[in-house]
């Protein structure tokens, strides 16, 4: 029934959070900027667009500002780092398993449809809000910016208000 419990148990979330906080602090002190994930994804999106229709993307108001080489950006490299770090940790702790995570009574097709639609909505929202859980909620709140705190509260509001609708995908 519980398909998440393979490999070593997870680290205590407070300790993991503390180490994450130290990573963020290091980023502030060396890089002079916080963490971010959606920025790199959006750059990847612009790059995909350039491969398909370069003229159109370069002339668009939003992606166009990133020029012909949108991947030459620090957050793209941070995104690659997240993949590497996550992979090393998952391998070392024997937690890599190809699967579609869902409740036992929910179909994989429906679960993937929700993941896709949620992804589209999320990708759009990060551009509007200028960041995601990493760049806005985590980094912005640690810096006590008004926008970071507002984004964090709004995210929880949006999540809790609609959680009931999407509950079935986790039913075993």
């Amino acid at each position: 029934m519980n398909n998440e419990q393979q490999g070593n148990p997870y680290l205590n979330p407070y300790l993991a959070g503390f180490l994450l906080g130290l990573t963020l602090l290091t980023s502030f002190l060396i890089l002079g900027a916080g963490l971010g994930a959606s920025g790199g994804l959006a750059r990847l999106s612009a790059w995909c667009g350039l491969c398909i229709a370069p003229e159109q993307i370069l002339n668009s108001a939003y992606f166009g500002a990133w020029g012909e080489q949108p991947l030459k950006y620090y957050l793209v490299f941070m995104l690659a780092g997240i993949l590497v770090g996550g992979f090393v940790s998952a391998v070392v702790n024997r937690r890599v398993k190809i699967q579609t995570e869902r409740g036992a009574s929910y179909s994989a097709g429906k679960r993937l449809a929700l993941a896709l639609l949620g992804g589209i909505i999320t990708g759009f929202a990060t551009r509007l809000a200028r960041g995601c859980t990493s760049g806005m909620a985590l980094t912005g709140t640690a810096l006590l910016t008004t926008g970071g705190v507002a984004f964090l509260l709004a995210t929880f509001a949006g999540g809790y208000m609609t959680a009931y609708i999407f509950r079935r995908q986790w039913h075993d």
Binding site: L117, R130, A157, G158
Partner: peptide, 21 residues
């Protein structure tokens, strides 16, 4: 933009169970 974006983001988050990072 951040309140509106955050709210929409929260819906996408609970729908998919993921956020970008």
């Amino acid at each position: 933009a951040q309140i509106l974006g955050g709210f929409i983001f929260g819906i996408g988050f609970v729908m998919s169970g993921w956020c970008p990072g």
